[in-house]
Design a binder for these strands. Structure first.
Lengths: 350, 350
DNA sequence: TTGAAAGCGCTAACAG
DNA sequence: CTGTTAGCGCTTTCAA
């Protein structure tokens, strides 16, 4: 591979001139340099450039799992912005593990100009320690217990409130909640939304109606089974993310329970195929791609020095999309006192 | 940030010793160096290291769209392998555009040790030109017209044959095919599979039964409508990828056609939620994650010099998963001659 | 085993 | 506008 010296020699100029030419500055010998570059098929070494300038032209993105459609959309939004700015994106999957996240962040921090991460837990040491470095960081979807970070979140509480209100309007009073980990922002915030909305609607408090999952499909499945096996089971459930919703739906199907007749369900995060599900899924939707591009915009603002102070937090709106997985509860299901329903026939016969 | 010189000074040794210590070689002053590193919180600059060694510890991955669940799974498989080997992965979305792919490849080639790409078209200039560089490349899912590349593909022809045979066994004779672009490997190969399998089963040849889509959801939707509007419409359709299948399903729903009663459908590529669709989708499945990790393994074999010759092509098996979107055709639908169906009433009245 | 020193390819003063 | 030159931080001969 030809280097800048070769080009300089071929063009009969100094390396400095070639460098200037490359930077778009005016040079008298532009034509000769251009010719030499073409003749030698020269492309500058990004590595050498980075070593000299300290810039990498790359950003890092750390998400729990690219396989989750939400994060795929998010990453796509980021990627598109990055390409426009001429930056590469280095992807890392933390797999919902703080340890793995820490390792990724430590590895990436040395080869990127900025980092976008969806931190697993709010007490995230690896993220918190990032404030000591000079690399700009923006948090997305999830936050940490510090106000110093730029972050783009969604209105979790408002979203869950929308879901609960919708269910209440339908006549439900027994509403369960399959939560994400309380240690994460969306886990905690959505649960808070459930608690607040339930209280606002004067729903009875059933501690057994909230089950803490881990945002993965299997935990949604398990939680749904647990809910269904309750002696006093709920008539509706709101699920804190897309993967757990799929798990819950699978459980419901295997359990042979009719949705929404026997159980209404609303999920968090829309899916491209939500309307094709059986039944079409009622969801709280947000723009994944949009959330990604906003995060990227925030990050590039800091990288390019347009914005010097961090700590800006954007909270994006969400929207309830009503489809067919929610309906009024069966008349018999809940209103009736438990005692009468469970009293043996013999007793009434006396 | 402390550099190697600082550490050397603090430990009272030369930079060479620190470098050797870092490389895991035996050094007398190991303890002092270790202490200095810890005291200064030193981490070596990957950039400087790269400039010196020519290695980047990163691989590039170029796929059409990370938002497609198949590619998300593929990338995940690659990522996991890469992390184990200590490599970062730089992601690029070509968006089914050869131009964009070319730009990505050109940009990545300079900062990675190897490249995994799913080329948009088989006559791919940007990929073909890669053979001149020294960077190892492995092709995945899609190939190019050259035998010199390592590639991991799937048994496209076998998969489509499985689908057609399944449909024929059910009693279908009017089977349509929504294809991907003929310029791409899976587009061409799956179409070939359709042609071969149809011929083997002595199915009538209906040129209007194959529609060339672009692998995206919208084109599946459009193709399905086109098929449905045919005067002599098919009773079953096989769709060449997951996104187009979703599109076709949406069209069918809007058209109010009952699946599988009025139209049987089998998709290529399984989806985590395929069984939750209405109806649960019959598909040709393959291991996306597995395909990714195999590609990664092939690539690292070349990067680390274990394998010196390229040109190895792996063809992974596929599997038919029968669910509920396929059934026997309605008795009336096809057997009847077209003439009788389309002949105006007036004519018969004469 | 160790240190001195060269140099990977580039950019950015600096001096002209 | 141009060339000379000094590094960016590291690895790796080469000699000791």
């Amino acid at each position: 591979m030809a280097n800048i010296q070769d080009v300089a020699d071929a063009a009969g100029v100094s390396t400095a001139s070639v460098s200037r030419f490359l930077a778009g500055q005016k040079v008298r010998t532009a034509d000769a340099i251009r010719a030499a570059i073409k003749a030698l098929d020269y492309t500058p070494s990004t590595i050498a450039r980075s070593l000299k300038t300290g810039r990498h032209n790359a950003i890092g993105v750390v998400v729990p799992d690219i396989t989750n459609p939400f994060f795929a959309g998010l990453v796509r939004g980021i990627e598109d912005q990055a390409r426009v700015k001429g930056y590469d994106v280095i992807l890392g999957n933390s797999d919902e593990s703080p340890t793995q996240e820490e390792a990724l962040v430590q590895a990436l921090i040395k080869r990127v100009d900025g980092l976008i991460v969806a931190p697993i837990i709010e007490e995230d040491q690896s993220i918190l320690s990032l404030s000591k470095t000079s690399v700009p960081v923006v948090l997305v979807d999830r936050s940490v217990t510090s106000t110093n970070y730029d972050s783009v979140l969604v209105d979790n509480i408002g979203g869950i409130t929308l879901a609960v209100d919708h269910l209440v309007a339908l006549g439900h009073t027994q509403i369960a909640f399959i939560s994400g980990p309380f240690t994460s922002t969306p886990g905690r915030a959505r649960h808070t939304g459930y608690v607040i909305a339930s209280a606002a609607r004067n729903l009875d408090h059933h501690p057994e109606f909230v089950i803490e999952g881990d945002f993965r499909e299997e935990s949604g499945d398990a939680a749904m089974r647990q809910l269904w096996n309750l002696p006093n089971r709920p008539t509706a459930v709101v699920v804190a993310n897309n993967l757990m919703t799929i798990g819950a739906l699978k459980a419901l199907r295997e359990l042979d329970v009719a949705v929404p007749a026997q159980m209404s369900i609303v999920g968090f995060d829309d899916l491209s195929f939500a309307e094709l599900l059986q039944p079409p899924l009622t969801v709280i939707a947000r723009g994944d791609n949009d959330q990604g591009s906003r995060a990227a915009t925030l990050l590039f603002g800091r990288i390019q020095g347009t914005r010097t102070r961090s700590g800006e937090v954007m909270t994006l709106p969400v929207q309830l999309i009503v489809r067919k997985s929610t309906a009024a509860p069966l008349a018999t299901t809940s209103g009736t006192p438990i005692s009468s329903a469970t009293t043996p026939k013999e007793t009434t016969a006396l």
